[in-house]
Computed example of a mutant assay.
Amino acid sequence: MNKILLAAALAVVAAAPFAAQADENNNQLDNFFVAGNLGQSNYRLGGVSDKTDVFQNVRFGWRWNGIVGAEIGYAYLGKVKNDFDFASTSAKPRVGQIGVTGKYNFYDNWFVTGHGGYLRSRTTGAVTVGDATASERSWNNGWYAGAGVGYDITRNVALGVNYDNYHIKYGRDGAQEPQTNANVATYSASVEVKF
């Protein structure tokens, strides 16, 4: 955990020079944004593949000079389920995230975006046998990263399409059951509003 927090802190420090070079005539309050994503999650977890769940994400942030900045957010990654003859297992992760973000206009109103950083996941795992269900929650650290392309509809509203990858874990190190790692790929459409 300390290594991930150190990496996130170094990323924010690396972006700080952009703030120092900000144009004093530019209203820096214009660089606050809120973005929402809606799409589909694709779990890659051992032999389980689930591509039918809804992905939702909301992020708040600020970009120095409208290009590089910091963000915080919350994501719902859907629910992965595996059915057997006599039982079923499922996992439903949610994550809080903090990281760096970037947006670059490359032609007229067209832009590319990128972001990544640290996440804290809360995953609810469940086993169902007949009508009986047992569940357990697990809190873990991980990381996320993603990229997108889009178009500025107006000065304050942008639409985009995105790919994100969330690296999450379930269980505890040293517990009787081994810790499980999973990558959750997400494909989504986004709306960003800049204030």
Results as ranks from 00 to 15, higher is better:
residue 156 N to W: 01
residue 102 G to H: 04
residue 31 N to T: 07
residue 76 Y to A: 08
residue 35 A to D: 10
residue 31 N to E: 13
residue 73 G to F: 10
residue 110 W to S: 01
residue 74 Y to K: 06
residue 161 V to Q: 03
residue 191 V to K: 06
residue 49 S to E: 14
residue 115 H to M: 06
residue 185 A to Q: 13
residue 158 A to R: 09
residue 93 P to L: 01
residue 103 K to N: 11
residue 13 V to A: 15
residue 164 D to A: 10
residue 134 A to G: 07
residue 124 T to A: 08
residue 88 S to G: 11
residue 108 D to H: 10
residue 108 D to K: 14
residue 136 E to K: 13
residue 173 D to W: 01
residue 92 K to C: 00
residue 24 E to S: 14
residue 65 N to V: 00
residue 133 T to P: 04
residue 10 L to A: 15
residue 92 K to L: 03
residue 118 Y to C: 01
residue 165 N to S: 09
residue 25 N to D: 15
residue 16 A to V: 12
residue 188 S to Q: 06
residue 72 I to P: 05
residue 8 A to R: 09
residue 153 I to P: 04
residue 176 Q to P: 05
residue 63 R to D: 08
residue 174 G to M: 07
residue 65 N to S: 14
residue 79 K to A: 01
residue 189 A to I: 11
residue 7 A to T: 15
residue 130 G to W: 08
residue 191 V to I: 15
residue 83 D to A: 02
residue 58 V to Y: 05
residue 193 V to W: 15
residue 71 E to V: 02
residue 11 A to F: 10
residue 59 R to V: 14
residue 161 V to K: 07
residue 147 A to R: 05
residue 34 V to Q: 00
residue 62 W to A: 04
residue 109 N to L: 01
residue 10 L to R: 03
residue 193 V to T: 10
residue 63 R to F: 05
residue 44 R to L: 06
residue 142 G to A: 05
residue 56 Q to F: 08
residue 182 A to V: 06
residue 189 A to K: 03
residue 30 D to G: 06
residue 72 I to F: 12
residue 156 N to Y: 05
residue 92 K to V: 04
residue 136 E to I: 04
residue 71 E to F: 13
residue 73 G to Q: 06
residue 107 Y to Q: 07
residue 165 N to T: 09
residue 110 W to D: 00
residue 153 I to Y: 14
residue 134 A to M: 08
residue 135 S to N: 11
residue 132 A to F: 14
residue 105 N to D: 15
residue 146 G to P: 09
residue 84 F to H: 09
residue 145 A to P: 00
residue 79 K to D: 12
residue 14 A to L: 15
residue 72 I to Q: 02
residue 109 N to K: 15
residue 4 I to Q: 11
residue 131 D to T: 14
residue 164 D to M: 10
residue 135 S to Y: 01
residue 61 G to M: 03
residue 33 F to Y: 15
residue 75 A to H: 04
residue 187 Y to H: 03
residue 28 Q to Y: 11
residue 103 K to G: 02
residue 141 N to M: 07
residue 32 F to T: 07
residue 177 E to I: 10
residue 55 F to M: 03
residue 68 V to I: 15
residue 154 T to D: 09
residue 73 G to S: 03
residue 128 T to A: 08
residue 74 Y to G: 07
residue 41 S to T: 15
residue 62 W to D: 08
residue 177 E to D: 10
residue 23 D to E: 08
residue 60 F to K: 00
residue 194 K to D: 13
residue 6 L to C: 07
residue 181 N to Y: 11
